[in-house]
Computed example of a mutant assay.
Amino acid sequence: MGSPDESNTRREVDVVVIGAGQAGLSSAYHLRRDGPARGTGFVVLDADPLPGGAWRHRPATLTMAKVHGIFDLPGSRFRTAESTDRTADPDDSADASRPVAEVVADYFAAYERRNDLPVLRPVPVDSVREDGDRLLVGAGNREWAARAVINATGTWRRPYWPAYPGAADFAGRQLHSAGYGGPAEFAGRRVVVVGGGNSAAQILSEIADVAAATTWVTRRPPVFRDSFTREDGRAAVARVEERVRAGLPPQSVVSVTGLAYTTVVKEALRKGALTRLSMFDRILPDGVLWSDGRFVPADVIVWATGFRPDLGHLAPLRLREPGGGIRMDGTRVVAQPRLHLVGYGPSASTVGANRAGRAAAREVVRMLAENMIVGAV
């Protein structure tokens, strides 16, 4: 891991990778392995001060025992302490009682060291703009002029808060699930949790033991799945990919997969915390109200309503289509072929992020090689 130079500098590189989560590290791994064979190489810019990506921000109560699974980074098996796989690295072992934030941060840090990945942090990128035949990546008073950019900023820094009538008048506390730190602060409180995903299930399973009352509300009835096949996964990804090819905002892959019967979901069901109500119509100072007159008193509203792609730094490139999204061809942005988005749309999942990182890196390496040949002619 490197440390950024604080002076006002401009550095020329072949590729800039923005973000060092699953998608960014996958991209960096394949860039390191496959090229570029010539030039000034690549750099990974990460906004966080330490490794781990979005995982490092998970609450300490989310332990390895509660996680459905951690997907391997390319070329490195992730295993739990109970694994008998002797080919796995000792740094990658994990005790079921440890917080996932710790375990994955350790795994990512070891991965960066082992693969000699040139990660600079903390470097929050402010902008990406065109500069002749390069893309200029700005972060404060530092700039990187790149032949190509792989953007892997994910969604964690952009939690989605839906607008509901009366929200500004609520006298209690409102927070997004991104700010959830554990059940202790909800002791004796009446809590409404909004959202139909795994984050909502985790929060409900934990606070059910301490809260005075919990209420779960979702826009659509939840779909519980006993299993999720490869065909189901391909169908979900295809639906999202169809939207981004059309220049529409992507749906989350997770939003179309339903809730699997994970340890957390089973625990929440056993506690009776997953009895769902339809979405309320209005927020009052002391609770939430439905159009049929139903009222639920509340001290806290937790918005487990997901995230949106963190792409504000790409605004200078004017990539948005009339439909509101960014038109994609695979990982490549149609309006700006030197830019690839990974962890966006169909690759906004750990397995998808790995594949997208490999695809983006290979296409970038191929583009650089073709440009070198043309330049030599």
Score class of each variant (00 low, 15 high):
Leu62Ser: 08
Leu62Val: 12
Thr63Tyr: 11
Met64Trp: 02
His68Ala: 12
His68Glu: 14
Gly69Arg: 02
Gly69Ser: 07
Ile70Trp: 05
Leu73Arg: 09
Leu73Ala: 09
Gly75His: 03
Arg77Met: 13
Phe78Ile: 06
Thr80Ile: 12
Thr80Arg: 09
Thr80His: 09
Ser83Lys: 00
Thr84Val: 15
Asp85Leu: 14
Arg86Asp: 14
Thr87Tyr: 12
Thr87Phe: 15
Ala88Asp: 13
Ala88Cys: 11
Ala88Trp: 06
Ala88Gln: 10
Asp89Pro: 03
Pro90Tyr: 14
Ser93Cys: 11
Asp95Tyr: 14
Ser97Leu: 04
Ser97Arg: 15
Ser97Asp: 03
Arg98Ser: 12
Val100Asp: 10
Val100Thr: 14
Ala101Gly: 04
Ala101Asp: 01
Glu102Met: 06
Glu102His: 06
Val103Cys: 11
Ala105Leu: 05
Ala105Arg: 08
Ala105Trp: 06
Ala110Arg: 06
Glu112Asp: 03
Glu112Cys: 12
Glu112Leu: 14
Arg113Ser: 04
Arg114Cys: 00
Arg114Ser: 03
Asp116Leu: 12
Asp116Trp: 03
Leu117Ile: 13
Pro118His: 06
Arg121Met: 12
Arg121Ile: 12
Val123Ala: 02
Pro124Ile: 00
Pro124Cys: 05
Val125Ser: 06
Asp126Pro: 04
Val128Lys: 03
Val128Phe: 03
Val128Gly: 02
Gly132Pro: 15
Arg134Ser: 07
Leu135Pro: 06
Leu136Trp: 00
Val137Ala: 01
Ala139Arg: 01
Ala139Cys: 00
Gly140Ile: 02
Gly140Met: 08
Gly140Leu: 05
Asn141Arg: 14
Arg142Tyr: 03
Trp144Ser: 01
Ala145Val: 00
Ala146Asp: 09
Ala146Val: 05
Ala148Asn: 01
Ala148Leu: 07
Ile150Trp: 11
Asn151Leu: 15
Asn151Gln: 15
Asn151Trp: 08
Ala152Gln: 04
Ala152Asn: 08
Thr153Phe: 11
Thr153Pro: 04
Thr155Tyr: 06
Thr155Asn: 13
Trp156Glu: 08
Arg158Gln: 09
Arg158Trp: 03
Pro159Gly: 04
Tyr160Lys: 04
Ala163Pro: 11
Tyr164Asp: 15
Tyr164Asn: 08
Tyr164His: 11
Pro165Phe: 10
Pro165Arg: 13
Gly166Trp: 10
Gly166Arg: 08
Gly166Thr: 11
Ala167Val: 13
Ala168Met: 05
Asp169Gln: 05
Ala171Ile: 01
Gly172Met: 05
Gly172Asp: 00
Arg173Met: 14
Gln174Tyr: 02
Gln174Pro: 05
His176Tyr: 06
His176Ala: 01
Ser177Arg: 05
Ser177Lys: 07
Gly179Asn: 14
Gly179Phe: 14
Gly181Ala: 12
Gly182Ser: 02
Pro183Ile: 07
Ala184Gln: 15
Ala184Met: 09
Phe186Lys: 12
Gly188Val: 06
Arg189His: 14
Arg190Lys: 11
Val191Met: 10
Val192Thr: 04
Val192His: 02
Val192Asp: 04
Val192Cys: 04
Val193Asn: 09
